[in-house]
């Protein structure tokens, strides 16, 4: 009997369930997509609202919101095989990322307790990684973008996704 239990435990340890990083953090709904007229207005609004979100925590919220938004945009565009636009959206999501860490560092310097914000960020990053890992499976490694009247470009999607994952994994 003892041997059977030991054997079952060993089996569990040898073949653990494969689970992706999971987080309760909720990403936003996809907003308007590039190409529509409203999207341009939305970009203007986004730029203006940067000033509305003043302060360290305000900037943290703004940049996290932006990095979330563009990640969802990238995911949606990749699903619709809009690889160039998706690729750009993913890079934009990464672009906002350092600002989050910078605003947290600033808040800490200003003697604000950032423990809750760090938890939020950690949860967000787990959700991002979860999304990016799925994205990596569902998208081609590279894509040859052939614009009209211009030279073709190869989009290294896999490397970009991996870099995005690494950025998020390195959150302290």
């Amino acid at each position: 009997m003892a041997f059977r239990i030991f054997f079952i435990i060993i089996l569990f340890l040898l073949f653990p369930q494969v689970s992706l990083a999971q987080s309760n953090y909720v990403l936003p709904y996809p907003s308007g997509m590039p190409g529509s007229l409203s999207y341009k207005f939305h970009l203007l609004y986004e730029n203006a609202s940067r000033y509305w979100y003043f302060g360290d925590f305000g900037q943290f919220d703004y940049n996290l919101k932006m990095t979330d938004k563009y990640l969802v945009e990238a995911k949606t565009l990749f699903e619709y095989k809009q690889y160039l636009l998706g690729y750009k959206a993913l890079k934009k999501s990464d672009f906002y990322f350092p600002n989050i860490l910078f605003s947290l560092a600033k808040a800490k310097n200003n003697n604000k307790d950032i423990s809750q914000k760090k938890i939020i960020l950690k949860q967000a990053m787990l959700k991002h990684i979860e999304t990016l890992e799925r994205m990596e499976v569902d998208t081609p490694d590279t894509f040859n973008w052939q614009p009209e009247k211009a030279l073709p470009t190869t989009l290294d999607i896999k490397t970009t996704i991996e870099r995005a994952i690494n950025i998020r994994k390195n959150v302290p």
Partner: peptide, 16 residues
């Protein structure tokens, strides 16, 4: 005091 926008940041966010 915290120099944050009160329409964006809630008082509860200032732990402690």
């Amino acid at each position: 005091f915290y120099q944050e926008n009160p329409y964006v940041v809630m008082p509860i966010e200032f732990v402690g």
